[in-house]
Every structure is written in C-alpha cells, then in structure tokens.
Amino acid sequence: MSAAAPFAPGLFDCRDAYARTLEALAAEDPRIVAVVNDSVGSSKLGKFRDRFPERLINVGIAEQNMVGVGAGLANGGKIPFVSGAACFLTARALEQIKADVAYSAANVKLCGISSGVAYGELGATHHSIEDLAWLRPMRGLTVIVPSDPWETAEAVKAAAASDQPIFIRISRMPVPELEHRAPFAIGKAEILRDGADVAIIAAGTLVHRALAAAEALAAGGIEARVINMATIAPLDEAAILAAAADCGAIVTAEEHVVRGGLGGAVAEVLATQRPTPMRILGFDGFQPTGSAEWLMERAGLTAAGVAAAARDLVSRKRD
C-alpha cells in the first residue's frame, strides 16, 4: 500500500489523531499554538488553522527558525507544538533542538511527522530513521514513539500537560488500534502480552507487528512477552531488566537504524546491568527507493521477521 492510498478498514493514520487531539486541546487552552514549516497539509493541521488562524504560525521553509521561534513562543507563555516532517525537523534544526529547546528546558513540543520510512519512494533524504539516535542522548528531552492513534492522542495530551521539552514521533504508516493494558504514562513501558520464553521490545509501527509475531510464536509453543516501549527517553529500565530476568532473551524492533535507537538504548541497559542475548531489528543504513511496506519487509520489520529473530534467540538459549 502506498502511503497516499486510503487505508484499509481498521487501519489508521496517526497524524489524524495528532491533529484532532491538538485541535481539541487548543479549544480548551489558549496557550496552545502550532508552528509549521509550510507543513500545514503534511501535519494535517488545516482544520486547526481554520479554527485558530492566529495560533497557527507558518514560518515557511525554515526549520532552524521554526524551532527557535518555538522556544521564543514558550518564553512568551505559549505551549508550541512545532510540527514538521521528522526528517527535516530533527536533522536541519538539530542544534536548535539541542540549545534552544533541550538545554534551555524550553516548554516546546516537537512533533516529527511522517517519521521512519513513511516517505518510502522519496528516498533516504526523506526517511527519518536516524532521529532517535541524535535526540535520545539529549538529557531533559523526552522522546515518545506512539504505536497507534490512541497512544498518539494520549502522548499529545501528556505533552500539553507537561512543562518540559518533548519530541513525539508521529507515523503516517497504517496501523491498527491496539488493545492497551495500561493508561499511557510518559516513561512507563506497557506489557501488551506476557510470556517468559523471549521478550520483544518494540516501539511505534513495530508494536502491532510484534504482537502478530507473538501470536505466531505461541502457535509454535514459544510464549513471548511483548513490551510497548513508547517512551524511548527517559527509558523504563526496570521493565527491561525484568524482561531480561524473566525471559533471558530480548528482541528489539523499531522503524529506525539499528544503531542508536531503541535497540541501542536497551543494549546500554543490558550490557551494563544484566548481559542478556539480544537481537536488534531495524534498518542497516540509508534505504533505497521503494514503498514503505516494501522497505519494512526488506529489512525484516514484519511479524514474520520479528518471529524469526525470536525463534533464533530461543533456540540458542535452549542449546
């Protein structure tokens, strides 16, 4: 399915949940403003603009200025949601994110739209699969990767309620609504399915694929714990250590390169506190052109790919 095609029934675009939630919050709180880089359409903020025209600040195609302006709006008492394609927002404005937002502890919400390989055919310039690696180390910047529309909405609400800098990675890949087991809380992992043979720690668009992988594994007698790690920073280390203790084998899966993302974050915890066999699933580097789903399949970021990695780890554990 191409990203532009209408989604099949039961599948959703998280940008809709983002835009709907932001508009509802803005109706209640006049401090909420949106800042965009000519990205009203790609952020799906057309209705927000029509309803709150003076609270939609379009800086034009200028990401460094967009983030700096966001920090200034926060200084002036606003709660800015700075929304742009994740690839440009995070890479072009990285020093502004570091100095003006994270280091300044400015109350800015950065919304990286159409993250990962959603812009598949447009190529590696438009893929955002390095962003977690360069945002995750910034102390004080919370990094959230929602898995579905409900979690996207909850993350936006939590971000608006917080006075701290937050990055939300918002996909346009079709995802189903998941059956969540716990209320959303920043920094808290959610166990979506329990098991003790292997733990699959996933984020964003990989969570529903991890759940499908667990179904397949169960059919073959392997019980997998599926952990939705929606907050990449700060990381729920306790959930990771408990999974390592209970399962003894961990697979991570993310729509990101295999260096510096969720897998790297989990590996940092395990290597220093409880060495545990691991597989890190993700992209190996710059990706070629092709549909988003084709790129995911090529990298093994599918239910079958996740299940295969889990089986491999379990068989090695049993040897």
Partner: peptide
C-alpha cells in the same frame, strides 16, 4: 537569562518567537 545561547545564529529566531507571542496576546 531568557534563552541559552552560545552557538551563533540562535538568538534572533528565539526573539522573533517571543515577539510573536506578544503579538498574539497584545501583552
């Protein structure tokens, strides 16, 4: 101190953001 600076080219965008906030509120 209103915003952390040091790397050059950061202050004017932040000041513009502050001025926009004031413009919205007529503060």
């Amino acid at each position: 101190v209103e915003t952390n600076t040091g790397p050059l080219g950061h202050g004017l965008p932040v000041a513009v953001g502050i001025a926009i906030a004031e413009q919205i509120d007529s503060a």
